[in-house]
Amino acid sequence: MQLDLFLIIFWTAAIVFVAVEGILIYTVVRFRRKPGQEMPKQWHGHTRLEVAWTIAPALVLVVIAVPTITTIFKTANTPNQAEVLEVTVRAHQWWWEFQYPQFGVVTANELHIPPDPWVIEATLESDDVIHSFWVPKLVGKLDVVPNNTNKLWFAASRIDADPATPELDPYFGLCAEFCGTAHALMRFRVIVEPTKAAFDAWVEQQKAPPVAPASQLAKDGQRLFGEKGCTVCHTATGPDREGLQSARMTSFLRTEPGKPAPYPAPNLTHFASRTTLASATLDNTDDSLRRWLEDPNKVKPGNHMAKLAGAYTNPNLRLTPEDISALMAYLRSLQ
């Protein structure tokens, strides 16, 4: 519907553009001064012409205004139908948290949804500053405002990457309101499951309790995950406790800048099932995961983990390459 309206506006504007610029160029060329030309006649105005060119644009605007107003009201409320999936989107500096309250599932930076005719009703909440939720090829943006919940609905059919440019991400989402240092790297990916059944299967997998790590390396990683202080902010054992994140936010706001404090951070329970990391800016490969753990600030300048986590601020907790290998093995086990 937004596209239809945009096309109406675009073609109206294009016609006006060609007409007015055409007249302008014609005027400038035709009435250029020629040598020996006498003074032109002094017209001061022409009332009927002036009335006409006030009314004509007004009519053009009606062409735009009527579909604008009808679209605003048509898209204001979620359609009244059975197939509605509720998602709570919580925006953080600088990543996205997606909660599925109907299923008790919490994930980060990747929004899995069932295809059309399912309608997604997103409740937008912010933990810190104003962000804006936008998936350019799917739904127009709506701001995510602290203390002021917004609602947005949309439906999606599954599309695959264009074979001509397979590297282009079909449904990338991003933050559209400047929200601080890493604003440019606050992205997410929308994954439209081929069927509702596939979506349900994904939900079941996400609801499953975390699997205990099998290998020794992964077990070491799990120990380090606690010892190095990762658990101050990250949960890897199911959904966050009720209120945990807001408690973390409050403590962050009361902390002096620069001093370590707990901060809301992505839930890592099923980290290995994600296709991206660092707020959908990197593919979830071993190579990028190692780079991320070695120096998060290099990968994503400004991020709070580099600024606040003991592993990067306290020399006693610094991660050795072996530590990182162990942590990676543990994270990879979080299927």
Partner: peptide
């Protein structure tokens, strides 16, 4: 000036 179209254009 058309809000539904602006939802795509705003902040771009």
């Amino acid at each position: 000036a058309s809000p539904p179209a602006d939802a795509q254009q705003q902040d771009t």
